[in-house]
Design a protein around this nucleic acid. Sequence first.
DNA 1: CGGTGACTTGACCTCTGTCAAGAGAAGTGG
DNA 2: CCACTTCTCTTGACAGAGGTCAAGTCACCG
Lengths: 239, 239
Amino acid sequence: MIDILIRSLENHDIISEAERAQLRAVLDKEKEVEPDEDIVKQGSRPLVSTVLTAGFAARYKLTAEGSRQITALHVPGDFVDLHAFMLKTMDHGIVALSTCRIVTVDHTDLLTLSHTAPHLTRLFWLKTLVDGAVHREWIVAMGRRSKRAHLAHLICELFVRLRAVGLTEGNGFHFPLSQGEMADVLGLSLVHMNRTIQGLRRDGLISWTNQTIEILKWDELAAIADFDETYLSLSVEPR
Amino acid sequence: MIDILIRSLENHDIISEAERAQLRAVLDKEKEVEPDEDIVKQGSRPLVSTVLTAGFAARYKLTAEGSRQITALHVPGDFVDLHAFMLKTMDHGIVALSTCRIVTVDHTDLLTLSHTAPHLTRLFWLKTLVDGAVHREWIVAMGRRSKRAHLAHLICELFVRLRAVGLTEGNGFHFPLSQGEMADVLGLSLVHMNRTIQGLRRDGLISWTNQTIEILKWDELAAIADFDETYLSLSVEPR
DNA sequence: CGGTGACTTGACCTCTGTCAAGAGAAGTGG
DNA sequence: CCACTTCTCTTGACAGAGGTCAAGTCACCG
Protein backbone atom coordinates (compact mmCIF):
# COMPACT_ATOMS: atom_id res chain seq x y z
CA MET A 1 0.00 0.00 0.00
CA ILE A 2 1.50 3.27 -1.07
CA ASP A 3 -1.53 5.05 0.35
CA ILE A 4 0.42 5.54 3.54
CA LEU A 5 3.01 7.66 1.67
CA ILE A 6 0.29 9.79 0.15
CA ARG A 7 -1.43 10.14 3.50
CA SER A 8 1.88 11.22 4.97
CA LEU A 9 2.44 13.85 2.26
CA GLU A 10 -1.12 15.07 2.66
CA ASN A 11 -0.24 16.25 6.14
CA HIS A 12 1.70 19.06 4.50
CA ASP A 13 -0.02 20.00 1.24
CA ILE A 14 -2.70 18.94 -1.23
CA ILE A 15 -1.64 16.15 -3.60
CA SER A 16 -3.30 16.25 -7.01
CA GLU A 17 -4.66 13.19 -8.78
CA ALA A 18 -1.94 13.59 -11.41
CA GLU A 19 0.74 13.56 -8.72
CA ARG A 20 -0.71 10.42 -7.16
CA ALA A 21 -0.48 8.78 -10.54
CA GLN A 22 3.12 9.92 -10.97
CA LEU A 23 3.95 8.49 -7.56
CA ARG A 24 2.29 5.16 -8.27
CA ALA A 25 4.16 4.91 -11.55
CA VAL A 26 7.59 5.03 -9.93
CA LEU A 27 6.97 2.89 -6.84
CA ASP A 28 8.22 -0.67 -6.97
CA LYS A 29 6.59 -3.75 -5.41
CA GLU A 30 6.31 -4.00 -1.65
CA LYS A 31 8.90 -6.14 0.12
CA GLU A 32 9.23 -7.43 3.65
CA VAL A 33 12.23 -6.97 5.92
CA GLU A 34 12.97 -8.96 9.09
CA PRO A 35 13.67 -7.31 12.46
CA ASP A 36 17.35 -6.33 12.93
CA GLU A 37 17.97 -6.60 9.21
CA ASP A 38 19.70 -3.63 7.57
CA ILE A 39 17.46 -1.88 5.06
CA VAL A 40 20.39 0.22 3.87
CA LYS A 41 24.01 -0.39 4.80
CA GLN A 42 26.36 2.32 6.01
CA GLY A 43 28.91 3.16 3.32
CA SER A 44 26.79 1.83 0.46
CA ARG A 45 25.76 3.88 -2.57
CA PRO A 46 22.09 3.00 -3.12
CA LEU A 47 20.49 3.41 -6.54
CA VAL A 48 17.02 3.42 -5.04
CA SER A 49 15.31 5.21 -2.17
CA THR A 50 13.01 3.46 0.25
CA VAL A 51 9.59 4.24 1.65
CA LEU A 52 8.61 2.52 4.87
CA THR A 53 5.02 1.29 4.54
CA ALA A 54 4.75 -0.76 7.74
CA GLY A 55 6.82 -1.25 10.88
CA PHE A 56 9.50 0.77 12.64
CA ALA A 57 12.98 1.51 11.33
CA ALA A 58 15.95 3.50 12.61
CA ARG A 59 18.92 5.36 11.24
CA TYR A 60 22.02 4.64 13.26
CA LYS A 61 25.75 5.07 13.45
CA LEU A 62 28.27 2.91 15.24
CA THR A 63 31.16 4.53 17.09
CA ALA A 64 34.71 3.25 17.03
CA GLU A 65 34.17 1.71 20.49
CA GLY A 66 31.24 -0.24 19.10
CA SER A 67 28.34 1.51 20.75
CA ARG A 68 25.33 2.43 18.67
CA GLN A 69 23.51 5.73 18.48
CA ILE A 70 20.15 5.84 16.77
CA THR A 71 19.81 9.24 15.07
CA ALA A 72 16.25 8.92 13.84
CA LEU A 73 13.20 6.72 14.20
CA HIS A 74 10.96 6.14 11.23
CA VAL A 75 7.28 5.35 11.12
CA PRO A 76 5.16 4.14 8.20
CA GLY A 77 4.87 6.75 5.45
CA ASP A 78 8.43 7.98 5.97
CA PHE A 79 10.87 8.09 3.09
CA VAL A 80 13.72 6.51 5.06
CA ASP A 81 16.63 7.11 2.70
CA LEU A 82 15.64 9.83 0.31
CA HIS A 83 18.94 11.36 1.47
CA ALA A 84 20.93 8.87 -0.56
CA PHE A 85 19.44 10.31 -3.76
CA MET A 86 21.56 13.44 -3.25
CA LEU A 87 24.20 12.41 -0.72
CA LYS A 88 25.17 9.38 -2.83
CA THR A 89 27.22 7.61 -0.15
CA MET A 90 25.34 6.54 2.98
CA ASP A 91 27.10 7.97 6.04
CA HIS A 92 24.83 5.89 8.29
CA GLY A 93 22.88 2.66 8.23
CA ILE A 94 19.15 2.04 8.38
CA VAL A 95 17.85 -0.97 10.26
CA ALA A 96 14.42 -2.52 10.66
CA LEU A 97 13.42 -2.53 14.33
CA SER A 98 10.38 -4.71 13.70
CA THR A 99 9.12 -6.65 10.74
CA CYS A 100 8.87 -3.93 8.11
CA ARG A 101 7.32 -3.53 4.71
CA ILE A 102 9.11 -1.28 2.24
CA VAL A 103 8.69 0.08 -1.28
CA THR A 104 11.56 1.45 -3.34
CA VAL A 105 11.89 4.15 -6.01
CA ASP A 106 14.74 4.30 -8.52
CA HIS A 107 16.95 7.36 -8.24
CA THR A 108 16.66 7.77 -12.00
CA ASP A 109 12.91 8.19 -11.51
CA LEU A 110 13.47 10.73 -8.76
CA LEU A 111 15.81 12.59 -11.10
CA THR A 112 13.15 12.61 -13.80
CA LEU A 113 10.53 13.79 -11.33
CA SER A 114 12.78 16.69 -10.32
CA HIS A 115 12.29 17.94 -13.90
CA THR A 116 8.71 16.91 -14.54
CA ALA A 117 7.16 17.24 -11.09
CA PRO A 118 8.66 20.21 -9.24
CA HIS A 119 5.89 20.34 -6.67
CA LEU A 120 6.22 16.69 -5.78
CA THR A 121 9.98 17.16 -5.64
CA ARG A 122 9.57 20.08 -3.26
CA LEU A 123 7.42 17.88 -1.05
CA PHE A 124 10.12 15.20 -1.03
CA TRP A 125 12.55 17.95 -0.08
CA LEU A 126 10.15 19.00 2.65
CA LYS A 127 10.09 15.47 4.03
CA THR A 128 13.88 15.53 4.41
CA LEU A 129 13.64 18.99 6.00
CA VAL A 130 11.19 17.68 8.58
CA ASP A 131 13.70 14.91 9.30
CA GLY A 132 16.20 17.68 9.93
CA ALA A 133 13.78 19.52 12.21
CA VAL A 134 13.33 16.34 14.22
CA HIS A 135 17.10 16.00 14.46
CA ARG A 136 17.32 19.52 15.86
CA GLU A 137 14.68 18.77 18.43
CA TRP A 138 16.59 15.67 19.46
CA ILE A 139 19.80 17.70 19.80
CA VAL A 140 17.98 20.10 22.11
CA ALA A 141 16.63 17.18 24.12
CA MET A 142 20.05 15.58 24.42
CA GLY A 143 21.85 18.79 25.25
CA ARG A 144 19.53 20.71 27.50
CA ARG A 145 16.78 18.47 28.81
CA SER A 146 16.79 15.92 31.60
CA LYS A 147 16.56 12.31 30.51
CA ARG A 148 13.04 12.22 31.89
CA ALA A 149 12.07 15.21 29.75
CA HIS A 150 13.85 13.72 26.75
CA LEU A 151 11.89 10.50 27.01
CA ALA A 152 8.65 12.38 27.54
CA HIS A 153 9.42 14.46 24.46
CA LEU A 154 10.11 11.40 22.36
CA ILE A 155 6.85 9.78 23.38
CA CYS A 156 4.92 12.94 22.54
CA GLU A 157 6.67 13.15 19.17
CA LEU A 158 5.99 9.52 18.30
CA PHE A 159 2.35 9.88 19.24
CA VAL A 160 1.85 12.94 17.04
CA ARG A 161 3.74 11.45 14.11
CA LEU A 162 1.85 8.18 14.30
CA ARG A 163 -1.47 9.93 14.66
CA ALA A 164 -0.71 11.90 11.50
CA VAL A 165 -0.67 8.63 9.55
CA GLY A 166 -3.57 7.09 11.42
CA LEU A 167 -1.62 4.62 13.53
CA THR A 168 -2.77 5.56 17.01
CA GLU A 169 -5.66 4.10 18.95
CA GLY A 170 -7.09 6.49 21.49
CA ASN A 171 -4.14 7.78 23.48
CA GLY A 172 -1.95 4.81 22.72
CA PHE A 173 0.09 3.26 19.97
CA HIS A 174 1.86 0.02 19.18
CA PHE A 175 5.57 0.38 19.87
CA PRO A 176 7.77 -2.70 19.48
CA LEU A 177 11.18 -1.31 20.54
CA SER A 178 12.99 -2.89 23.47
CA GLN A 179 14.39 -0.77 26.28
CA GLY A 180 17.86 -1.51 24.96
CA GLU A 181 16.93 -0.05 21.58
CA MET A 182 15.41 2.97 23.28
CA ALA A 183 18.66 3.44 25.19
CA ASP A 184 20.41 3.74 21.82
CA VAL A 185 17.91 6.41 20.87
CA LEU A 186 18.34 8.54 23.98
CA GLY A 187 22.08 7.92 24.31
CA LEU A 188 21.59 6.26 27.68
CA SER A 189 22.72 3.07 29.34
CA LEU A 190 20.15 0.29 29.41
CA VAL A 191 19.94 0.44 33.18
CA HIS A 192 19.20 4.13 33.30
CA MET A 193 16.77 3.85 30.40
CA ASN A 194 14.80 1.39 32.50
CA ARG A 195 14.81 3.71 35.51
CA THR A 196 13.73 6.67 33.42
CA ILE A 197 10.79 4.75 31.97
CA GLN A 198 9.80 3.61 35.40
CA GLY A 199 9.87 7.20 36.58
CA LEU A 200 7.18 8.16 34.06
CA ARG A 201 5.21 5.03 34.87
CA ARG A 202 5.38 5.59 38.61
CA ASP A 203 3.96 9.08 38.20
CA GLY A 204 1.06 7.71 36.18
CA LEU A 205 2.01 9.62 33.03
CA ILE A 206 2.26 6.62 30.74
CA SER A 207 1.75 2.91 30.68
CA TRP A 208 4.04 0.79 28.55
CA THR A 209 3.36 -2.93 28.39
CA ASN A 210 2.97 -5.52 25.65
CA GLN A 211 4.73 -3.32 23.12
CA THR A 212 2.07 -0.68 23.59
CA ILE A 213 2.55 2.82 24.93
CA GLU A 214 -0.48 4.57 26.38
CA ILE A 215 -0.30 8.24 27.29
CA LEU A 216 -2.32 8.61 30.49
CA LYS A 217 -1.85 12.34 31.07
CA TRP A 218 -1.04 14.16 27.85
CA ASP A 219 -0.98 17.66 29.30
CA GLU A 220 1.44 16.77 32.08
CA LEU A 221 3.64 14.71 29.79
CA ALA A 222 3.80 17.52 27.21
CA ALA A 223 4.61 20.01 29.98
CA ILE A 224 7.49 17.90 31.27
CA ALA A 225 8.71 17.47 27.69
CA ASP A 226 8.29 21.16 26.83
CA PHE A 227 6.66 19.74 23.69
CA ASP A 228 5.57 22.00 20.81
CA GLU A 229 4.70 20.19 17.58
CA THR A 230 5.46 23.15 15.29
CA TYR A 231 8.69 21.53 14.14
CA LEU A 232 6.80 18.65 12.53
CA SER A 233 5.23 21.07 10.01
CA LEU A 234 1.90 19.27 10.14
CA SER A 235 -0.12 21.93 8.36
CA VAL A 236 -1.64 21.79 4.91
CA GLU A 237 -0.46 24.80 2.93
CA PRO A 238 1.00 25.53 -0.51
CA ARG A 239 4.64 24.42 -0.45
CA MET B 1 30.48 38.58 -2.71
CA ILE B 2 28.32 35.66 -3.69
CA ASP B 3 31.40 33.80 -4.87
CA ILE B 4 31.53 32.11 -1.49
CA LEU B 5 28.14 30.47 -2.15
CA ILE B 6 29.30 29.21 -5.53
CA ARG B 7 32.56 27.96 -4.05
CA SER B 8 30.55 26.16 -1.41
CA LEU B 9 28.31 24.51 -4.00
CA GLU B 10 31.33 23.57 -6.10
CA ASN B 11 32.43 21.27 -3.32
CA HIS B 12 29.63 18.94 -4.39
CA ASP B 13 29.13 19.30 -8.14
CA ILE B 14 30.05 21.35 -11.19
CA ILE B 15 28.14 24.63 -11.51
CA SER B 16 27.58 25.80 -15.07
CA GLU B 17 28.01 29.40 -16.19
CA ALA B 18 24.26 29.58 -16.82
CA GLU B 19 23.58 28.48 -13.26
CA ARG B 20 25.97 31.08 -11.87
CA ALA B 21 24.04 33.69 -13.80
CA GLN B 22 20.73 32.37 -12.47
CA LEU B 23 22.10 32.54 -8.96
CA ARG B 24 23.42 36.09 -9.35
CA ALA B 25 20.08 37.18 -10.73
CA VAL B 26 18.16 36.18 -7.60
CA LEU B 27 20.61 37.27 -4.91
CA ASP B 28 19.86 40.51 -3.17
CA LYS B 29 22.37 43.09 -1.90
CA GLU B 30 24.75 42.13 0.89
CA LYS B 31 23.83 43.33 4.37
CA GLU B 32 25.68 43.38 7.67
CA VAL B 33 24.42 41.91 10.94
CA GLU B 34 25.80 42.69 14.40
CA PRO B 35 26.94 39.99 16.84
CA ASP B 36 24.08 38.56 18.95
CA GLU B 37 21.53 39.94 16.54
CA ASP B 38 18.88 37.49 15.30
CA ILE B 39 19.13 36.87 11.56
CA VAL B 40 15.84 34.96 11.64
CA LYS B 41 13.45 34.86 14.57
CA GLN B 42 11.91 31.70 15.94
CA GLY B 43 8.22 31.52 15.07
CA SER B 44 8.50 33.90 12.11
CA ARG B 45 7.43 33.06 8.56
CA PRO B 46 10.23 34.43 6.38
CA LEU B 47 9.58 35.32 2.74
CA VAL B 48 13.29 35.17 1.93
CA SER B 49 16.11 32.74 2.59
CA THR B 50 19.55 33.85 3.70
CA VAL B 51 23.08 33.00 2.60
CA LEU B 52 25.86 33.70 5.07
CA THR B 53 28.75 35.32 3.20
CA ALA B 54 30.97 36.24 6.13
CA GLY B 55 31.08 35.49 9.87
CA PHE B 56 29.66 32.75 12.05
CA ALA B 57 25.99 32.12 12.76
CA ALA B 58 24.06 29.54 14.77
CA ARG B 59 20.65 27.92 14.80
CA TYR B 60 19.30 27.65 18.30
CA LYS B 61 16.32 26.80 20.39
CA LEU B 62 15.46 28.00 23.87
CA THR B 63 13.96 25.60 26.39
CA ALA B 64 11.14 26.46 28.75
CA GLU B 65 13.66 26.87 31.58
CA GLY B 66 15.50 29.44 29.50
CA SER B 67 18.64 27.57 28.57
CA ARG B 68 19.85 27.68 25.00
CA GLN B 69 20.91 24.81 22.77
CA ILE B 70 22.70 25.60 19.55
CA THR B 71 21.68 22.97 17.00
CA ALA B 72 23.96 24.02 14.14
CA LEU B 73 26.89 26.29 13.42
CA HIS B 74 27.12 28.02 10.06
CA VAL B 75 30.18 29.16 8.19
CA PRO B 76 30.40 31.44 5.14
CA GLY B 77 28.83 29.90 2.06
CA ASP B 78 26.07 28.22 4.06
CA PHE B 79 22.42 28.78 3.20
CA VAL B 80 21.34 29.35 6.79
CA ASP B 81 17.57 29.24 6.43
CA LEU B 82 16.76 27.54 3.18
CA HIS B 83 14.55 25.41 5.43
CA ALA B 84 12.04 28.20 5.79
CA PHE B 85 11.30 28.02 2.05
CA MET B 86 9.54 24.70 2.62
CA LEU B 87 8.90 24.58 6.35
CA LYS B 88 7.23 28.02 6.27
CA THR B 89 7.21 28.60 10.03
CA MET B 90 10.63 28.81 11.71
CA ASP B 91 10.75 26.29 14.54
CA HIS B 92 14.08 27.76 15.67
CA GLY B 93 15.99 31.02 15.58
CA ILE B 94 19.21 31.95 13.80
CA VAL B 95 21.64 34.32 15.47
CA ALA B 96 24.84 36.00 14.35
CA LEU B 97 27.72 34.93 16.61
CA SER B 98 30.09 37.50 15.12
CA THR B 99 29.65 40.41 12.77
CA CYS B 100 28.11 38.69 9.75
CA ARG B 101 27.43 39.56 6.16
CA ILE B 102 24.35 38.06 4.57
CA VAL B 103 22.60 37.95 1.21
CA THR B 104 18.94 37.03 0.80
CA VAL B 105 16.89 35.33 -1.92
CA ASP B 106 13.12 35.70 -2.27
CA HIS B 107 11.15 32.49 -1.81
CA THR B 108 9.24 33.36 -4.98
CA ASP B 109 12.56 33.20 -6.85
CA LEU B 110 13.38 29.85 -5.24
CA LEU B 111 9.96 28.62 -6.32
CA THR B 112 10.63 29.74 -9.89
CA LEU B 113 14.05 28.10 -9.84
CA SER B 114 12.47 24.81 -8.74
CA HIS B 115 10.74 24.85 -12.15
CA THR B 116 13.43 26.39 -14.32
CA ALA B 117 16.61 25.12 -12.65
CA PRO B 118 16.09 21.59 -11.34
CA HIS B 119 19.81 20.91 -10.99
CA LEU B 120 20.41 24.03 -8.93
CA THR B 121 17.36 23.16 -6.87
CA ARG B 122 18.71 19.69 -6.24
CA LEU B 123 21.96 21.26 -5.04
CA PHE B 124 20.02 23.49 -2.65
CA TRP B 125 18.27 20.37 -1.45
CA LEU B 126 21.66 18.73 -1.05
CA LYS B 127 22.85 21.62 1.12
CA THR B 128 19.96 21.06 3.49
CA LEU B 129 20.68 17.33 3.47
CA VAL B 130 24.27 17.98 4.48
CA ASP B 131 22.89 20.10 7.33
CA GLY B 132 20.91 17.02 8.32
CA ALA B 133 23.99 14.82 8.11
CA VAL B 134 25.81 17.22 10.43
CA HIS B 135 22.87 17.08 12.83
CA ARG B 136 23.12 13.30 12.90
CA GLU B 137 26.80 13.45 13.62
CA TRP B 138 26.13 15.84 16.48
CA ILE B 139 23.48 13.50 17.87
CA VAL B 140 26.02 10.67 17.86
CA ALA B 141 28.55 12.92 19.57
CA MET B 142 26.06 13.98 22.23
CA GLY B 143 24.72 10.51 22.83
CA ARG B 144 27.70 8.23 22.64
CA ARG B 145 30.92 10.21 22.83
CA SER B 146 32.73 11.73 25.80
CA LYS B 147 32.70 15.50 25.97
CA ARG B 148 36.36 15.48 25.09
CA ALA B 149 35.66 13.46 21.95
CA HIS B 150 32.67 15.62 21.15
CA LEU B 151 34.76 18.78 21.26
CA ALA B 152 37.54 17.15 19.24
CA HIS B 153 34.95 16.11 16.67
CA LEU B 154 33.52 19.59 16.41
CA ILE B 155 36.95 21.12 15.89
CA CYS B 156 37.73 18.60 13.15
CA GLU B 157 34.40 19.31 11.50
CA LEU B 158 34.83 23.07 11.61
CA PHE B 159 38.32 22.80 10.17
CA VAL B 160 37.18 20.67 7.24
CA ARG B 161 34.13 22.82 6.53
CA LEU B 162 36.12 26.04 6.66
CA ARG B 163 38.88 24.60 4.51
CA ALA B 164 36.28 23.67 1.91
CA VAL B 165 35.49 27.37 1.46
CA GLY B 166 39.09 28.51 1.77
CA LEU B 167 38.90 29.97 5.27
CA THR B 168 41.70 28.07 6.99
CA GLU B 169 45.31 29.12 7.31
CA GLY B 170 47.66 26.20 7.68
CA ASN B 171 46.23 24.05 10.45
CA GLY B 172 44.31 26.88 12.05
CA PHE B 173 41.24 29.01 11.57
CA HIS B 174 39.68 32.12 12.98
CA PHE B 175 36.98 31.21 15.48
CA PRO B 176 35.26 34.01 17.39
CA LEU B 177 32.91 32.03 19.66
CA SER B 178 33.22 32.40 23.43
CA GLN B 179 33.43 29.37 25.67
CA GLY B 180 29.92 30.15 26.86
CA GLU B 181 28.63 29.93 23.30
CA MET B 182 30.55 26.70 22.79
CA ALA B 183 28.89 25.32 25.92
CA ASP B 184 25.53 25.94 24.24
CA VAL B 185 26.79 23.98 21.24
CA LEU B 186 27.96 20.94 23.19
CA GLY B 187 25.15 21.04 25.74
CA LEU B 188 27.60 21.58 28.57
CA SER B 189 27.94 23.93 31.51
CA LEU B 190 30.36 26.79 30.99
CA VAL B 191 32.67 25.48 33.71
CA HIS B 192 32.95 22.05 32.21
CA MET B 193 33.32 23.48 28.72
CA ASN B 194 36.38 25.30 29.99
CA ARG B 195 37.82 22.18 31.54
CA THR B 196 37.23 20.16 28.40
CA ILE B 197 39.03 22.73 26.26
CA GLN B 198 41.90 22.80 28.70
CA GLY B 199 42.12 19.04 28.49
CA LEU B 200 42.81 19.19 24.76
CA ARG B 201 45.21 22.08 25.27
CA ARG B 202 47.12 20.32 28.06
CA ASP B 203 47.69 17.32 25.82
CA GLY B 204 49.07 19.55 23.10
CA LEU B 205 46.34 18.66 20.61
CA ILE B 206 45.14 22.18 19.95
CA SER B 207 45.92 25.76 20.81
CA TRP B 208 43.05 28.21 21.14
CA THR B 209 43.90 31.82 21.83
CA ASN B 210 42.98 35.17 20.33
CA GLN B 211 39.88 33.74 18.67
CA THR B 212 42.05 31.36 16.70
CA ILE B 213 42.04 27.58 16.88
CA GLU B 214 45.17 25.79 15.74
CA ILE B 215 45.16 22.02 15.36
CA LEU B 216 48.56 20.85 16.56
CA LYS B 217 48.14 17.10 16.08
CA TRP B 218 45.49 16.35 13.48
CA ASP B 219 45.88 12.58 13.53
CA GLU B 220 45.53 12.29 17.28
CA LEU B 221 42.65 14.74 17.41
CA ALA B 222 40.80 12.91 14.64
CA ALA B 223 41.42 9.60 16.40
CA ILE B 224 39.99 10.88 19.68
CA ALA B 225 37.04 12.30 17.77
CA ASP B 226 36.51 9.15 15.69
CA PHE B 227 36.24 11.64 12.83
CA ASP B 228 35.31 10.57 9.30
CA GLU B 229 34.39 13.38 6.92
CA THR B 230 32.18 11.25 4.65
CA TYR B 231 29.05 12.81 6.11
CA LEU B 232 29.99 16.24 4.72
CA SER B 233 29.62 14.91 1.15
CA LEU B 234 32.62 16.91 -0.04
CA SER B 235 33.01 15.19 -3.39
CA VAL B 236 32.34 16.58 -6.83
CA GLU B 237 29.95 14.27 -8.65
CA PRO B 238 26.75 14.53 -10.69
CA ARG B 239 23.91 15.19 -8.24
C1' DC C 1 40.76 53.81 37.75
C1' DG C 2 36.53 51.36 38.28
C1' DG C 3 33.56 48.42 35.42
C1' DT C 4 32.64 44.72 32.35
C1' DG C 5 33.08 40.39 30.03
C1' DA C 6 35.59 36.23 29.37
C1' DC C 7 38.29 32.82 31.29
C1' DT C 8 39.98 29.89 35.49
C1' DT C 9 39.97 27.23 39.51
C1' DG C 10 38.21 24.84 43.73
C1' DA C 11 34.69 22.44 46.40
C1' DC C 12 30.87 19.79 46.56
C1' DC C 13 27.01 17.11 45.03
C1' DT C 14 23.97 14.74 41.69
C1' DC C 15 23.08 12.27 37.66
C1' DT C 16 24.25 8.52 34.97
C1' DG C 17 27.39 4.54 33.69
C1' DT C 18 29.14 0.08 35.00
C1' DC C 19 29.08 -4.28 37.18
C1' DA C 20 26.43 -7.94 38.99
C1' DA C 21 22.65 -10.65 39.82
C1' DG C 22 17.87 -12.07 39.82
C1' DA C 23 12.98 -12.52 37.91
C1' DG C 24 9.79 -13.47 34.37
C1' DA C 25 8.20 -14.73 29.76
C1' DA C 26 8.78 -17.23 25.64
C1' DG C 27 10.61 -20.57 22.79
C1' DT C 28 13.22 -25.28 22.04
C1' DG C 29 14.25 -29.97 22.21
C1' DG C 30 14.10 -34.41 24.36
C1' DC D 1 5.26 -32.22 29.70
C1' DC D 2 9.49 -30.67 31.63
C1' DA D 3 14.32 -28.99 31.74
C1' DC D 4 16.93 -25.49 29.47
C1' DT D 5 18.24 -21.57 27.02
C1' DT D 6 17.52 -16.92 25.75
C1' DC D 7 15.85 -12.40 25.91
C1' DT D 8 14.08 -8.61 28.25
C1' DC D 9 13.20 -6.27 32.22
C1' DT D 10 14.41 -5.05 37.04
C1' DT D 11 17.05 -3.85 41.16
C1' DG D 12 21.17 -2.79 44.08
C1' DA D 13 25.78 -1.00 44.89
C1' DC D 14 29.42 1.78 43.65
C1' DA D 15 32.28 5.00 40.87
C1' DG D 16 33.05 8.69 37.72
C1' DA D 17 31.54 12.41 34.66
C1' DG D 18 29.61 16.63 34.71
C1' DG D 19 26.56 20.41 37.08
C1' DT D 20 26.32 24.17 40.41
C1' DC D 21 28.02 27.62 43.42
C1' DA D 22 31.49 30.74 44.53
C1' DA D 23 35.44 33.40 43.99
C1' DG D 24 39.46 35.09 41.71
C1' DT D 25 42.26 36.58 37.55
C1' DC D 26 43.05 38.99 33.42
C1' DA D 27 42.39 42.00 29.48
C1' DC D 28 40.04 45.70 27.69
C1' DC D 29 37.53 50.06 27.76
C1' DG D 30 35.33 54.34 28.84
